[in-house]
Structures are given as structure tokens and as C-alpha cells.
Computed example of a mutant assay.
Amino acid sequence: MYKIISIRNLDHYFGNGSLRKQVLFNINLEINRSEIVILTGHSGCGKTTLLTLIGGLRSPQSGSVLVLGRELCGANAEQLVQARRRNGYIFQSHNLHGSLTALQNVTMGLELHQYIDSSEISTRAIQILEQVGLGNRLNYYPDQLSGGQKQRVAIARALVSHPQIVLADEPTAALDSQSGRDVVNLMQKLAKEQGCTILMVTHDNRILDIADRIVQMEDGKLVNPTPATIS
């Protein structure tokens, strides 16, 4: 069975010399296509570091990190750029550009993909914003949107290019209970429709039920990780 993410014996360190500190210890994890996996654990245990390594935001130092069949350990800057373009990202603070409208923020998520015809970009951006319930907010700027609406724009931006993997770092942390539930339900629905894999870091116990699997991290180690089932 093809694993969309396969991590073997991953260690990671921050700092150099006497300040060098190990933050990830012998991580082994496999994730199947179309799985929704939630990574939990206390603040500072290494969850976000692991997410950034899988996403190509930094280069793994030791072990093996195979993502969509490509080895990221030891990857150079250009290889990491190519890896990042194949993922969708949703962050806690949504990271929208305040000077751009909702439509422009989502359109920007397509402009890096040269295989998408320029005439198709606007059409796809409008369609995904309609899917997340913001068809009447296309030309609104972020400061004109609620927290939940901003995260919906961030979801649209992450999914508009139909990535095979969506990486989400605390996407509900800044939202109230109902907005948080709406956001993760929407992520789940769209991801299943597109057949993509979600790896989500969260402290939010209210949304754990959307996961196919929950993986717990403690002090840089995975605690009794369950194996990926064949799907």
C-alpha cells in the first residue's frame, strides 16, 4: 500500500555546539492517502516542528521523510520549494494578506502553479469560495470578515489547487466553539471530496472526532502511535 507520508527514524535538533538541543526523537509515522490524522500533545512537545518538516518548511536533518514519494531529508532549497507547492497549508492565524480581498487571497494560492491556465484561476477561486459559504464576500478584505470567515478563506486558499496533502496547525485555536466546529467540518467535507490527506496539529479536544486516527506526541516522541491501516 502506497503511503502518502512515510517517516523513518527521524531526529531533529535546534541550535549548534553547546546550544544544540534535540527536539524530535526517532519519529516513525505512516499516513495513507485520504486519511485525516490529528497530532496532539502539550505545547512545546514538537508537533509544529514535525509538521514543518513534513511540509518542506525546513529540511529534515536525520532519518527519512518521504512525502508523495520524494525524500526531504537533505533536500536543497529548490527541492523544498517544489515540495511546498504540492501541499496546502492552514495556520492558526490564517495568514491572509490584509491588503488583498478574499478572492485575491485565494487567487494567489493558484498563481504559483504554472500548470493552471490563467483563465481558469479566477473561476476556480470563485468556486471554492462559494463552496466555503463566502460567495457573497468575494471582495471583502480580511478586516471586514469574522474570525471564522477568515479561516474559511484560508481553507479555500489551501484547497483551491487540489493538493494531495493539507497541513493544518491549530486551525481552530482562535475561534469560538461553533466557528471551530464549522471550520473543521468544512475541512473534512472538502478534503474527502478532493481525496486529499489532512494532518492537523491541535489542542482542541472538541474536534478530535473528525479524525481517522489520533497520534499523541510527548517531549519530542510519538507515544504509542497506531499504524496506518490499509485503505
Rank of each mutant, 00 (worst) to 15 (best):
I4P: 08
I5N: 08
R8T: 10
L10W: 05
F14H: 14
N16P: 11
S18L: 02
Q22W: 08
N26W: 08
L29V: 01
I31T: 12
E35F: 02
I36V: 11
V37I: 10
S43H: 02
T49I: 00
L50C: 06
L51M: 12
G56K: 08
V65M: 07
L66N: 15
E71A: 09
L72P: 02
C73H: 07
N76D: 14
L80K: 10
R84W: 06
F91S: 08
Q92D: 11
L96P: 03
T107H: 04
L112C: 08
Y115Q: 12
S119I: 04
E120T: 04
R124P: 08
V132G: 09
L134N: 05
G135Q: 12
Q144C: 03
Q144D: 05
L145N: 04
G147S: 05
Q149G: 11
I155V: 15
R157Y: 13
A158P: 08
V160E: 06
S161Q: 13
P163K: 00
I165F: 09
V166I: 15
A168C: 13
D169Y: 03
E170V: 09
P171F: 01
A173G: 10
L190F: 03
K192V: 08
E193D: 12
Q194Y: 14
V201H: 02
T202P: 07
H203P: 00
H203E: 09
D204T: 05
N205Y: 11
R206I: 05
R206E: 15
L222G: 12
T226L: 15
T229I: 11
